[in-house]
């Protein structure tokens, strides 16, 4: 379908441009706001891949949770406590090594994947039922362990935040 192609290119453009702003902006709040557009258009890709549950989880967790936390952190440190925020390059060589390895891995994945077109691109089936059965059936133990780890992190951060 033609419209889907146009929507894909639109999302791709928004993702790339806003990701560049995230990296190169001197103002850290501009970076955070650009990250909003990056994350949102990535969730658009998930919709086009028919992973509806992952798309919405991306919005709820990354934008509604993590990005709000990032913006909160920036604003509280910058404007309320008056601490100065710096955006400059630190640890040049280690970061080049790490990003180089990650880029290599992504390129390897791109080249080694067998890019078959989706067999039934308009299947109306929702993914949530299967995800639910998998999470609370086959993968119950990893799911529960992950939630216990999150609970421990929650209690730990509450402990640190308490006044001594």
């Amino acid at each position: 379908m033609m419209l889907e192609n146009y929507v894909f290119y639109l999302f791709a453009l928004v993702t790339i441009v806003s990701a560049f702003i995230v990296v190169f902006s001197k103002n850290i709040v501009h970076s955070a706001v650009a990250l909003f557009f990056t994350l949102f258009s990535v969730s658009g890709f998930y919709v086009l891949l028919r992973a509806d549950f992952i798309a919405l989880t991306q919005i709820l967790v990354y934008i509604g949770g993590i990005l709000v936390l990032i913006i909160f952190g920036i604003m509280l440190t910058n404007k309320v406590t008056g601490a100065e925020l710096k955006t400059r390059n630190l640890h040049f060589i280690p970061s080049v090594v790490v990003t180089g390895i990650i880029t290599g891995m992504i390129i390897f994945l791109l080249l080694s994947t067998d890019w078959n077109p989706v067999k039934d691109p308009f299947s109306p089936n929702s993914t949530i039922k299967q995800i639910g059965f998998k999470l609370l059936g086959d993968y119950l133990l990893p799911f529960e362990i992950a939630s216990v780890i999150l609970l421990v992190a929650l209690i730990g951060s509450a402990m640190y935040a308490r006044k001594k």
């Binding site: 706001v33 949102f40 549950f53 919405l56 919005i59 709820l60 934008i63 990005l67 929702s126 949530i128």
Partner: peptide
């Protein structure tokens, strides 16, 4: 949507970003 209610809560939570900005 099959995920209608989930979509509603996810998408309306974006207004927080606008308010913070």
């Amino acid at each position: 949507l099959n995920l209608g209610l989930f979509y509603f809560f996810a998408i309306t939570s974006l207004s927080v970003i606008g308010i913070l900005i």
